[in-house]
Design a protein around this nucleic acid. Structure first.
Lengths: 147, 147
DNA sequence: TATAATTGTTATAATTTATAACAATATTGG
DNA sequence: CCAATATTGTTATAAATTATAACAATTATA
């Protein structure tokens, strides 16, 4: 069971995949008690940060296809965490906003997610964590260059 | 389009997800000309590194369910990159080995994947890359602790 | 030796991600 | 202004990924 994957460990992407698998599992478990999963939590954060955000903008930021975003927003809507307000400027579009309930759930879920992040990065110093995140965004930018 | 996701950038997992999305896309594009994708390339590497590896072991290392591994190994088998040899010690199991063709394809694909990794980590110094990978494995270990 | 566990497999379900088409509305070029 | 084109949210659907249940053959265990 030990060290049978040395050939893959040369690739930084392998470490990223393995680490992110754990992060995703732990975060989903952390959010489940709040009725959220990774993608709905992310959507809640973005709607809170950008009041009146439109579905298509949300989809674009999260890299989700618009048809799939419909279901995600439906899920938040059904749980009364957000509302879809018709835009007065563009009557095709909806402006998304958190409900009072949505604010409460987001606050609780955010605190839990912070705890999750702290657990996952336990034993990593603040400046190494800073280096890590900076390097990851650099990789992301390198990838975005060619599409 | 810019900076609408500040609330999510506090989470290191967000950077990991965004970066890995790019890595996965670029790596799959890199491997496609060799008839491979991320998971079949990983399997090839592991079979090469561990001659006679069994399907169930491969599945366990890669974190894939055994029924799904059947299809992955089928894919490599159909492409004549590996063979399934009946184990003499355990006649339920197959021992997996690369064919000559498999060795050739793996060598070419590995070189391409190395290039991919270099592209993705361009602008990152060697010791920062080292810090990055070490931190990622630490996160992975932290996650594994609680399951 | 009887019972239980493991290996590879099939079938199937659940989940996620992607594509095509459509009505309503908005934008743009003539 | 008007005709053509594009965009928004949506439905339907397909493709791809991931997970679960059951089974025969074989091995391990009690």
């Amino acid at each position: 069971m030990t060290g049978r994957d040395l050939s893959l460990r040369r690739f930084s992407g392998y470490a990223m995949k393995r680490a992110f698998n754990q992060v995703q599992a732990d975060l989903n478990a952390t959010l489940a008690p709040h009725g959220l999963r990774l993608v709905t939590f992310s959507a809640l954060c973005l709607i809170d940060e950008n009041k009146g955000l439109k579905q298509s903008e949300l989809a674009q930021i999260l890299g989700v296809e618009r048809p799939n975003m419909v279901l995600i927003v439906d899920e938040l809507d059904s749980a009364d965490l957000i509302v879809r307000d018709r835009s007065t400027e563009d009557r095709r579009a909806y402006e998304l906003r958190l409900t009072e309930q949505g604010e409460k759930v987001l606050a609780a879920a955010s605190a839990a997610a912070q705890g999750h992040d702290a657990r996952m990065t336990a034993g990593i110093t603040d400046d190494v964590r800073e280096t890590l995140v900076t390097a990851l965004w650099r990789i992301e930018a390198n990838g975005r260059q060619r599409d």
